[in-house]
Design a protein around this nucleic acid. Structure first.
Lengths: 235, 235
DNA sequence: CGAGTAATTGAACCCGCTCAACTATCGTGG
DNA sequence: CCACGATAGTTGAGCGGGTTCAATTACTCG
């Protein structure tokens, strides 16, 4: 019921292709390089911060980022871990509403916001596809609200692992965990220590295996799904 | 920083006007009544449930609803309290992803989904405006994720009261609270009792007054804003 | 192989929850 | 108009899941 499959709708939006096909690249500015310019970030680097002027839209080529909001005293809430093909800054607000940092090395394509907005107006159907992508993001955000508001620590970890598995192929048994325990905690509304303890418990219970901290094997997917759906304690 | 002003973008989408101006009403089906048909719900009535086929899109005319997701054992997370002018079912998914119930008596306009989708394709700029509305909803959802994942009970109540105040005019001192303590709890990831206790504490502290359970007066807006932003304990 | 960082584990604590009793409000019929 | 019942809200006492603080272990990368 609450399977948080990451949508592939955004993935199907081929911005680079549009840039070429529509011949818009050479209509905007002399500096063609600025259109779909490929940028690389090292792990830990900041792409943009909450409150910065939103000058560009990005599409991830490879790697994983963390998007988070922070409170003045440092408490963080990670709202997403965008990876391959996902579009960033879709919000099109004047200012970024979250900070984006690279977790791994990241390559992405950068599009000036003005170009992007013109593209939306000129390419029929694009707005509709972006709307579909935004809809899927909204649904994921609402699933996360249910998780943060009502699920137990163990249910949150189960949901998180299934989400990761869904990203790397729905049937994947071995799942890569590119983010730190602390990032996972800030995504799930827990502490690093609780995340670690729950991994240990689930390993103990035979639900998962942990060959290394960054590698998880899903041993009992049905049990994980029950936990994630909040049906773990039901007869 | 985290002021959760409810966007008015959706409010500016005049679907009824579009239905008339575009002359689409009599192009879809003989039964014109089905286009923008006005529907009334009594308090407590269900508009649609999670999993139902999504046959219509709705726009609220008056009253307030609750949208929630539920876990099998009954735990609930309310994801929004839509009221006047807000568009429901914007997601355009095949199935509704949450349950919608009336909190007060509600009147709304109903549009068949097929008609709505055609409208998006035919009216230039509409998709863009819906995208902007979806973007604002997404931002609100991310603010709520920060609230649910990282804010204390008192900070949640402060955020909630400012959100309510923002809806009924930004400068409103007296705020109507149409939803029950239990609904507030399920929106903020707390229990009814904690909500009640925090109201009592803030009344004690002189931050608010409670002439009646459904009526709140904001006495110290600056303090409320500090609490909502998570800066309540900062020097 | 050693230094620094990330992850794990342990022990005590606390915020918000649970369970329970009580109070206020409101509609309804005698 | 009031008694009554039902529902919503408040308040109290004790508990517990997850946090906090602290120490230990495991990686990772020069």
């Amino acid at each position: 019921m609450q399977v948080q499959a990451i949508s592939n709708v955004a993935a199907k939006i081929d911005l680079a292709g549009l840039a070429a096909c529509q011949g818009l690249a050479h209509r905007t500015r002399p500096q063609v390089a600025a259109i779909g310019y490929v940028q690389t970030l090292d792990a830990g680097e900041t792409l943009f911060a909450e409150g910065d002027a939103a000058a560009n839209v990005y599409q991830v080529i490879s790697g994983t980022l963390r998007l988070y909001k922070a409170l003045p005293d440092g408490r963080r809430q990670i709202v997403d871990f965008p990876s391959a093909e996902q579009v960033l800054g879709l919000s099109l607000a004047d200012q970024h509403v979250y900070t984006a940092e690279a977790i791994t090395e990241v390559t992405l394509r950068r599009y000036p916001r003005a170009w992007f907005e013109r593209l939306i107006a000129e390419v029929p159907g694009l707005a509709g596809r972006l709307l579909a992508a935004a809809r899927d993001e909204l649904r994921a955000a609402q699933d996360q609200m249910l998780l943060l508001g009502r699920k137990t620590a163990e249910e949150r970890i189960a949901s998180f692992l299934l989400m990761l598995a869904g990203r790397s192929g729905a049937l994947a048994q071995r799942v890569a965990v590119p983010m730190s325990r602390s990032d996972i905690a800030d995504y799930l509304g827990l502490t690093m220590e609780t995340v670690s303890r729950m991994f240990a418990k689930m390993k103990q219970d035979g639900v998962i295996a942990l060959p290394s901290p960054v590698r998880v094997e899903l041993r009992d997917r049905a049990r994980l799904a029950d936990l994630a759906a909040g049906a773990g304690a039901m007869h």
